[in-house]
């Protein structure tokens, strides 16, 4: 799908922060000053290790969490300042697909109730809901016989399809996919990915695709945002990011991907990355990656690096980029 990058972005995230108070003197900075845009019709991948704040960020975008500070503009409007009518419209236009299809479907509701719940809340009369649910189930590759069944009767892949049907039920334009395939089997993952691609072409959807699997993100996304410990370290188009990663963290992350090719995998040299992701509680005001970075200088431990645009659309937050 063609994306018009000159238009106003559909979603603008400006300096978004989400802190959790975890003790009297301890603040967990899950998302700390995140800025990026999403244009209509594109897929943006949000990647990072577990605990980097990518899911929290996704949840702030749909107002499952109230941001601590910063703004999320959807279609030019701040989503925290919507009135009741606008809020209802917002929840219709923005939907979410959750990570774990075993936990995100209510076990006491039938498929028809699960998929039709949003329609009911949007005021669709009962007699129309059934036909709509049937149509939705067909879109995601299930059939009407499944309507009266309960979630436990389905396999993981089928459940994820139900979750997708639920998200699609209210004709959204923007869907946040929070690791939609990581709980699925290898052979089923491709089925769901192909379906997400098909739906985007057919319905003109915009996706924010949150994942830790870099190969999948590369396959799906136009642009990729890499997060590390609550901050964005690098943003670029997917071709650019994988061909020419600039931030030391992105480089290390890319070189850690296990390749399904024994000769190449055994020959490839991993860029070593020391230790593990540190705690996001009360972080120091410096580059978050400094203690694991092999190029870190004194400055990295004292000053927060600013995001700089290295080439059009390629934004890196690293002190090393200044030389």
């Amino acid at each position: 799908m063609n994306v018009d990058y000159n238009a106003e972005p559909l979603v603008q995230v400006k300096d978004l922060c989400k802190y959790f108070q975890v003790g009297r003197h301890a603040t967990l900075k899950a998302v700390d000053g995140v800025t990026f845009n999403i244009w209509k019709g594109e897929t943006v991948g949000l990647v990072g290790e577990s605990g980097c704040g990518k899911s929290t960020c996704g949840r702030c975008l749909i107002r499952l969490y109230e941001p601590t500070s910063g703004q999320v503009l959807y279609d030019g409007k701040d989503i925290t300042k919507l009135n009741k009518e606008e809020q209802k419209e917002f929840t219709r236009r923005v939907q979410m697909i959750f990570q774990n299809p075993y936990a995100s479907l209510n076990p006491r509701m039938t498929v028809k109730e699960i998929v039709g719940e949003g329609l009911k809340l949007q005021g669709m009369p009962n007699n129309e809901i059934e036909a709509k649910v049937q149509e939705l189930l067909e879109t995601v590759g299930l059939n009407k016989d499944h309507m009266s069944r309960f979630p436990h009767e389905f396999s993981g892949g089928q459940r994820q399809r139900i979750g997708i049907a639920r998200a699609l039920s209210v004709d959204p334009e923007f869907i946040i996919c929070d690791e939609p395939i990581s709980a699925l089997d290898v052979s089923i993952q491709a089925q769901v990915l192909n379906m997400l691609n098909r739906l985007q072409d057919e319905l003109g959807l915009t996706y924010l695709f949150i994942a830790h699997d870099l190969s999948v993100v590369k396959y799906l996304s136009e642009r990729v945002v890499v997060m590390y410990l609550g901050t964005i370290v690098e943003t670029a188009t997917s071709e650019e990011l994988y061909a020419n990663p600039m931030h030391p963290y992105t480089k290390a992350l890319l070189s850690s991907i296990p390749e399904a090719d024994p000769r190449r995998a055994k020959a490839s040299q991993r860029i070593p990355i020391k230790g593990e992701i540190p705690s996001p509680i009360n972080p120091k005001a410096c580059c978050r990656f400094a203690n694991r970075c092999e190029f870190a200088t004194e400055r990295c431990f004292n000053e927060i690096p600013q995001a700089r645009e290295m080439s059009p659309g390629h934004i890196v937050a690293c002190h090393l980029m200044e030389q």
């Binding site: 396999s155 892949g157 089997d185 290898v186 052979s187 089923i188 993952q189 491709a190 089925q191 990915l193 192909n194 691609n197 699997d213 870099l214 190969s215 999948v216 590369k218 396959y219 799906l220 996304s221 136009e222 997917s238 994988y242 991907i257 390749e259 399904a260």
Partner: peptide, 25 residues
């Protein structure tokens, strides 16, 4: 073969269709 072609690899291009193994085990 199905296992190998159904995963997105770093050298898979955007827009290439993945070939999943249809059905369930």
């Amino acid at each position: 073969r199905g296992l190998m072609t159904s995963i997105a690899r770093l050298d898979t291009n955007r827009g290439d269709k993945l070939t999943p193994i249809e059905g369930t085990p």
